[in-house]
Design a protein around this nucleic acid. Sequence first.
DNA 1: CGACAACTTGACGGGCGTCAACCGGAGTGG
DNA 2: CCACTCCGGTTGACGCCCGTCAAGTTGTCG
Lengths: 243, 243
Amino acid sequence: MLGQNASALDLLIDNLERFGTFNAEDKDGLAALSLQVERVPRGFDVVHEGDPVNRCCLLMGGFAARYKEAASGARQIVSFHLRGDLLDVEHLLLDFADHSVQVMSEATLAWIPKAELIRLAWERPAVGKALWRMCLIDASIFREWVLNVGRRNARTRIAHMLCEFVARCEAAGLGTAQGFELPMTQQQIADATGMTTVHVNRTLRALDKDHALSRSGNQFRIHDWGRLCSIGDFDPAYLHEAA
Amino acid sequence: MLGQNASALDLLIDNLERFGTFNAEDKDGLAALSLQVERVPRGFDVVHEGDPVNRCCLLMGGFAARYKEAASGARQIVSFHLRGDLLDVEHLLLDFADHSVQVMSEATLAWIPKAELIRLAWERPAVGKALWRMCLIDASIFREWVLNVGRRNARTRIAHMLCEFVARCEAAGLGTAQGFELPMTQQQIADATGMTTVHVNRTLRALDKDHALSRSGNQFRIHDWGRLCSIGDFDPAYLHEAA
DNA sequence: CGACAACTTGACGGGCGTCAACCGGAGTGG
DNA sequence: CCACTCCGGTTGACGCCCGTCAAGTTGTCG
């Protein structure tokens, strides 16, 4: 249990350091956070639209999707998340959830009281800036997704989504373009790109046929990264990854 | 000149207070910000994708649109902004712009050095929280737009965009649903909803014909707000307006 | 009155949704 | 060890929503 908490804090610090530089006191502050580790099954709702939010969830392992639903019942995924992501910074200073987050695989979560994070953000400005930067980068990704679903065709849209996912996995130190596991179903790809499963399937097979990628089951491989980026109109600048 | 600066600061404080409560010292801190007022013509680029960003722009009058462009040249507007909005909080802690902002009408801007705002955010936590909340709410709007362009049909999409625009105008104290001026062209509505002008035109006329709204030139009137909300699948919860 | 931007309208076509099957693998239980 | 179920992937036929193209019309500003 203590081991779990220690590794959760390590993960949190490592990941936050991608968004800022910390001195020893900053790290001490982070290490003093109280948190509660939990293992949850696939499909677990981390937060649901309309819920009051008073804690913040660190994804310690597995994948998650942020989504909203239309009155028609259609679901739209607005971002994916991986190991190390803080899933609830979006609601850090808001009282009620305006969207939902669900894990896409069996996952390990660590809950942190929101009030402690907020307090720390002003006690240790470097930590606050890293958290805020994280929010700003999330927002940048949302904007790119508006463009993606609003102005690109099916082929480009899917290629773009895959490029982003791979780029973020690599930045987080999880796998590379040379063979990786896509932890999502075609239904989820459809929900992320604003398409139907049928058309996602057709488009993936077309990309495969054109040697832009190859698939077998969940295993994907990208032979020519530059080509996929070009098909997907993908420029990683909007991810604001540190140089 | 001094008068302009004073009114800019008043506007900034009034608008920020929608996102938090300030005491006298908070307001003093804000009032001490240095700023530079400028009048710009329609179409002026407040910031352009790729630019370094080291100042923050307050929109003192007029309307603005935040947008990105695809390789195909298609433009996607990702949000609209009105008098009182801080246009560059999205880049507050980022070095380079990942998108562009353009004014849609003749407009008055006030520039604030980013560094001063950042310093103030930690000196006066109430100010920092209000600024951060503003960012989070912007992000919530982006998410809603992903849903809007991803999962709604033309009629619902346009109705939703109009509802949001009117709701935000009312919250900012600019006009009401009973007759207001839409400061954008059908081309801009198309760019915001991921459609073509032709189809925007058809859809607007259909909404007009069905008495969901009435138009003459830029003048819009909404007779039955509830009905338009229902057509547009609009629930203002995601705007997180203070009760 | 000419120039230009914005809006309007009709004809046509295609990208993608819809509907409806079928297939294949993984889990489950008898 | 084999049926059964369920979920996810695959495929084809068909059609509609919305994009494309192209031609007006209107309003405004010089």
